[in-house]
Design a protein around this nucleic acid. Structure first.
Ligand SMILES: [Mg+2]
Ligand SMILES: [Mg+2]
Lengths: 441, 441
DNA sequence: GCCTTTAAACAATACA
DNA sequence: TTGTATTGTTTAAAGG
């Protein structure tokens, strides 16, 4: 932190605590050593959003990446979130934010052998390093707007994307609804025509919500600037010239991650867990299918995070990763491959290497993706990771196409709403059959 | 259910699991299916949390205990979770909740020889019987009442906690306030005369709830009581006089478990993961260190769960357990010992027996805990289980005191961080060095 | 409405 | 198989 992470809410020790004390009445002096930031500390002694805290945590280290535990630690040390040892809800919140805020990308562990077997490394997205982050909510599905359409490059393409965005992983606190849906499907073989269902559902929720809170609009004042602006880049943004990403033409690609080979990375869009849930509840292995991908290569600036296509998470392809030249973040669908590389299980590694070779040579990302999937699937170690492992007919036999081609999207689209699924029972395979290649599906 | 499990959300219409069906008939607790109670069914159709369902299941039987299968069965019969026979994810959730929610304790089978061989008996924690349970997500550590104040050994410790507690979360809208309220209530409840009237507790909650949601009251109606209170004790609370625990001086000790030998049981506190997280995040292997132990013997009333020391999970020590005289519940840290006894691994049992001998003789808990840890640690079987295994310096060489004593904290902190380990990455240790104890601080 | 926190479900591992 | 712990993804409730 010396240089970075100046934003730590609690300053070096318990200043935050102190403030709190004040608020609380009892004020145990604690002689505050930090006078400078008292001003804003008071304003956000502790209500700094988690996303922000995470941001600060990540900014506090040179490579802007940490594993979950470190993030916990940072927060525990620099905020009062973790004060009650019995209450671990804050960790849930941290995870929530990491998952949901596009500014945080996960990348596989470089070397597996170690001990970091589990989980990923959470890295700040390059654009976030420069511009700060945005509220987590922003990255959430843009609901309400009922697939309004609007952007419609491909007449239906744009639409599809919007939809995906909105719907992606609708799940819910209620798996119940999903489950319910499943039941319904089973019982009366989805007697309804398709679609509409989800909408009405959503609409209802929304409505309820709104009405409930309708009266309380006055408060917005609280933290005005912060509200709509991305979290203040200036204050928290990386000290101007950061080694890693700054200046780079391709800012999104950090050195070390930017493919030693200089090749563009493959980016796939994070579809989340939606896939597995699409209708089946699970299919364990496939937490996250590739659900999108406007472009296989990412050469544009950070703008990508607000284009309708959605934000992109990077994916490290097996071999590439292990060689240090791979791309970056990746989302669950790619997890298998990432892990394969990361853990470096001999056979898998070998296989992966072989499979990814083409990628290194500059194959289009799509292909690479396909290879990636193929390489990993069935390796055994990754077992549950791949959709195919358990999803029934789903396999990585081709390209888990994630991108432009309507094929991919449509497929995804289709799969997303559990309501949409025709597949009662589980006609999973056939369903996707025509999609061919589809999904990760 | 007349008296018990009146909350069953679903009728027993379903009949999917054949496996369960078989048992169903024989099961004494199931014969009288719920005939009515439709009334409250409406109130919590299906989104009842698993923890709650389990709670209901356990409350539905006199002794408040069941084996996993029975719990599955109960849920299958009384909810719609198991409607899709193909989908067994719910069982996973059930196990997860049993494991992670402090309200559920596992106790070894009385007669090992029988058929019960596998697994444990899951029993509702006495405090849960009275006060309901807490969400699994929030509390890993066991306790229905967070180390209340009362004995604030360390003058400032208790205070800090109170403050922190309230503070934590804060920003988050209702949840925070809800939590704060709950905590306050709980604390008060507890430290107050043992009014053990869950009702007042509940009533207060209710009230608060109402006021808080004043404007949005229409919505709040939905499931009023459930909203802000720990899972509603009253409705689900045990029918007044329950065989097992009622009246007993030592309610925490159920018949059959209360040491046939008449010896007091050893209770160690479940530190859950909280300890680990306090500053470091984890310390993998040691899921649950003994984080506290105000007293080694538990002869007091249920109050023990609210002493500042925190709640205690029971630990079965090797020899004791195998002899049928062992104590009761145990948490992961103690798992090794429990298993040793239960499974009767020769060498381990021997070792454990030796180690626990002192305990049986009445050593202070601290010692006992230490012994236990020592005995188990390094056994190999438990491998990662103990802190020492992976936490680096963390060991059960003493009392990993988690609470008041600052000393304890230090200990935990030190060992917990994985950073301590090899990866210097982040001068973690020193960091805490000066913090001393405080952590999280 | 947007944003945040929190709850919680569901997943998938990893271990034991 | 059962149990425990952790990490991740996603919805949703509630409140400012
Ligand atoms: Mg993310
Ligand atoms: Mg438990």
């Amino acid at each position: 932190m010396g240089q970075n992470q100046s934003g730590s809410p609690l300053e070096q020790n318990w200043s935050g605590y102190e403030e709190f004390m004040k608020e609380m009445n009892a004020s145990p002096s604690t002689e505050q050593q930090n006078q400078l930031d008292d001003s804003d500390q008071a304003s956000q002694p502790d209500d700094t959003p988690y996303a922000q805290l995470i941001y600060q945590a990540l900014m506090s280290v040179d490579d802007h990446q940490m594993i979950l535990r470190d993030i916990y630690k940072w927060i525990a040390e620099n905020t009062d979130k973790a004060i009650d040892p019995e209450f671990t809800g804050w960790q849930n919140s941290v995870r929530h934010n990491l998952s949901m805020n596009a500014a945080f990308n996960k990348i596989p562990h470089a070397h597996p052998g170690d001990k970091a077997k589990k989980g990923f490394i959470w890295a700040l997205d390059p654009s976030a390093i420069r511009n700060g982050i945005q509220p987590t909510t922003r990255y959430r599905a843009k609901k309400d707007d009922p697939k309004s359409s609007s952007s419609g490059s491909k007449p239906n393409k744009g639409r599809v994307q919007d939809i995906l965005r909105q719907r992606s992983g609708r799940r819910g606190g209620q798996a119940a609804s999903r489950r319910a849906a499943r039941e319904v499907l089973q019982r009366h073989d989805r007697e309804r025509e398709r679609g509409r269902d989800a909408h009405s559902h959503r609409a209802r929720h929304h409505k309820r919500n709104t009405s409930a809170t309708s009266t309380a609009s006055s408060v917005a004042e609280a933290s005005p600037s912060v509200l709509n602006a991305p979290y203040p880049p200036p204050p928290f943004a990386a000290p101007a010239p950061l080694s890693a990403f700054e200046d780079s033409e391709r800012e999104d690609v950090g050195p070390g991650y930017s493919g030693a080979n200089g090749l563009p990375e493959l980016w796939i869009r994070s579809g989340g867990y939606g896939g597995g849930f699409r209708g089946f509840g699970m299919g364990s292995g496939m937490s996250t299918p590739v659900t999108s991908g406007d472009e296989g290569f990412r050469t544009d600036d950070e703008e990508d995070d607000d284009e309708e296509g959605g934000y992109f998470g990077g994916a490290v392809l097996g071999g590439a990763s292990s060689s240090g030249g791979g791309a970056l973040v990746h989302t669950s669908a790619a997890t298998a491959a990432a892990h394969a590389a990361a853990h470096n299980a001999a056979h898998i590694a070998a296989h992966t290497a072989a499979m990814t070779a083409p990628f290194r040579m500059g194959l289009p990302s799509m292909s690479a993706a396909g290879v990636m999937g193929a390489g990993v699937d069935g390796e055994g170690d990754m077992g549950g990771y791949l959709a195919g492992e358990e999803g029934g007919g789903v396999e990585f036999n081709g390209l888990p196409r994630a991108g432009e081609e309507s094929g991919g999207w449509e497929f995804v689209e289709e799969g997303f709403g559990y309501e949409d699924q025709e597949h009662e029972g589980m006609g999973f395979e056939q369903k996707f059959e025509d999609d061919e290649g589809g999904f990760l599906g």
